[in-house]
Amino acid sequence: MSSARTVVIIAALTLREASRRRVLLALAVLTVALLGLSGWGFSRLAAESSEFSTLTSGEARLAASQLLNLVMFGFSLMAALGTAFLAGPTLSGETESGIALAVLARPVRRSAVLLGKWLGLVVFGSGFIVLAGLAQCVVVWATVDYWPPQPAVALALLAAQTTVLLTLAVLLSTAVSPMASGVVAVGLFGATWVAGVVGGAGASLDNEGLERVGTVSRVLLPTDGLWRGAMHAFQDPSPITASFAAAEAFPFLSMAPLTAGYLAWAALWVAMIWGLAVASFLRKDL
């Protein structure tokens, strides 16, 4: 039994689990609701700007960018919640309930099983965020005729953000209970987002202490940094957006694109956390 085969079998099993558990249905319902709501919101925006002509085209694009990022934040939150709460049951839930006993007594390596689970979750989470994000871009394009400058980059970064968070959830679920791992992962995700907003406010106020909060949290858990990179790729690249973002520290606009260095750090971070998860899983007595 080669380890590659084990990885593929377990990844397929994880995807099947995701598709059969309620989490997929819940995600689908929420996604459709959010898409419908945002479609309605954007069509109102379009009606306002054409009826009263109070908005210049630049302002309209700025508003569209902000709204798009706001809705995308909703999606990334859903992806984060969905995968974090899927990662818990699928790993620590299975070791707690005993499902893992029969599987791991087969001629498989534990690292291959963990990699398969992780891969299945990555495909699930990334698949969701890319599909939902793309649908949202189409909704925006149909209602207010705005198309983001780099949709592929933005969606890839959202997928990367989901991967970062679920890798953390996988590590946690090798050590703590299923529910706790989901709660802690989502809590940390929210905390770094808040820290990022605080850091943004610090930057606009020229307060270095506050700014450092955002920078440090972005290094410790790269979700927020990737999220800001994604926002930057979604939003209107015109100078008016940039100046607005810098002046107001608005949480749903980003000032700068991602650096290659940060991307490399995020990749390294995922590899390190994954390595820790394997080390913890290998030593576990079932």
Binding site: L13, R16, E17, R20, R21, I99, L101, A102, A105
Partner: peptide, 11 residues
């Protein structure tokens, strides 16, 4: 192997 704690994927 049949474990003492026998549980299989409920889905």
């Amino acid at each position: 192997y049949l474990p003492e704690l026998f549980r299989y994927q409920p889905w």
